[in-house]
Amino acid sequence: MPARLRLALFVTGLLALAAIAAVLMFAVGERTVPAAGFAGAVRPPDMPRTDFAVRDEHGEELRLAEMRGKPVVVTFLYTTCRDTCPLTAQQIRIALDDLGHDVPVVAVSVDPANDTPRRARAFALEQGLQGRMRWALGSASELQRLWRAYGIQPQSDDAEHTASTIVLDGQGVQRVGFAASILTPDGLAHDIAMLERERRAAS
């Protein structure tokens, strides 16, 4: 085989390999959920179960223990937020839509002085989550135990709150967490579905 032909074939082969590698890199970069395992960060296995009984935006008692048996999404928001919180709410709404059914979603206030029931109801309505998400409202002293249990820094004049969304399993155990920077509808829906399958397999 002439040297020029061998060189041409060699260069063509290299270009083909480079093209395949580029396609694979693009495909990996486009993935939003893993092929196996959780999309969110796995929580430590010794995280204690934390029940709470507070009032929601309608003045009704909200008790976490009553939600046992299915995954529960717990997120931390405040009603006057104009950036991270509405985005988080939309990610959750789209995840529920993608999942095809609702699971309990609880938004724990991180700004109790300003998160009034009226503002909480308005926020849920604006985000398309009316009837799909309940607010956990109360005084700072009432919510302090929740913030501590989930590792949350509340909103203050000096610091932004911890923007975190956590998924509990059917036993109320913290299983996976999403910082706002990694929360996606695909990832959240994926992890909820994994916990639902896990629950069915165990029953």
Rank of each mutant, 00 (worst) to 15 (best):
V23K: 05
W135T: 12
A163G: 06
E126T: 10
A27Y: 00
M67L: 15
G59N: 09
Q130M: 08
A113M: 11
Q174P: 04
Q153G: 02
M25L: 14
V105Q: 08
F38P: 03
V28T: 06
V176N: 09
R4G: 03
H190A: 03
K70L: 03
R197F: 02
T116A: 08
I182H: 05
F52W: 15
Q174N: 07
A120L: 00
R197I: 02
D102N: 11
A163N: 07
Q91H: 14
Q155W: 12
A107T: 08
E57P: 01
L7E: 12
P48G: 03
F10H: 03
I192Y: 06
R93Y: 07
G151L: 05
A36K: 09
L99Y: 07
A35C: 00
A113K: 15
P154I: 12
L5T: 12
D169A: 03
L195R: 07
F178V: 05
V28S: 05
Q130A: 14
L125P: 00
L137H: 06
S109E: 05
A124R: 01
V11W: 03
V28K: 11
L62M: 06
L17T: 12
Q144K: 14
D111G: 03
P112N: 13
E126L: 10
D186C: 00
A95M: 11
T12H: 00
V105Y: 09
A39R: 12
V110M: 11
T162W: 08
R118E: 15
A65L: 12
M67T: 04
D83N: 11
V103N: 04
G59T: 08
R118A: 15
R49K: 07
A89Y: 06
G131Y: 10
W135P: 09
R49A: 06
A136I: 14
L62Q: 06
D83E: 13
I92C: 10
S139W: 04
R199V: 00
D46C: 00
G131R: 12
S109C: 08
S156K: 04
T75M: 08
G128M: 10
P104H: 13
L7K: 11
G29H: 08
V108T: 13
D102E: 13
S109H: 05
F10R: 12
G177K: 04
L168M: 07
G37N: 06
A41H: 01
T165V: 02
G187Y: 01
A120S: 13
L15R: 02
G13H: 09
S181H: 07
S156G: 15
V74I: 14
M133A: 15
R68V: 02
L188A: 09
D111H: 01
L129S: 05
V106I: 15
T80V: 04
E57L: 01
L15G: 11
P112Q: 13
A89G: 15
T32E: 14
K70A: 14
G177A: 15
A136R: 13
P117K: 09
A189F: 07
D157T: 04
A149N: 09
R148Y: 07
K70T: 15
T88S: 10
M133V: 15
P44N: 06
T165I: 01
V74P: 04
E61S: 13
T79G: 10
S141G: 00
V72A: 05
P71C: 13
I182M: 06
G151D: 02
A16Q: 09
V108K: 08
L188M: 14
P48Y: 03
Q174K: 11
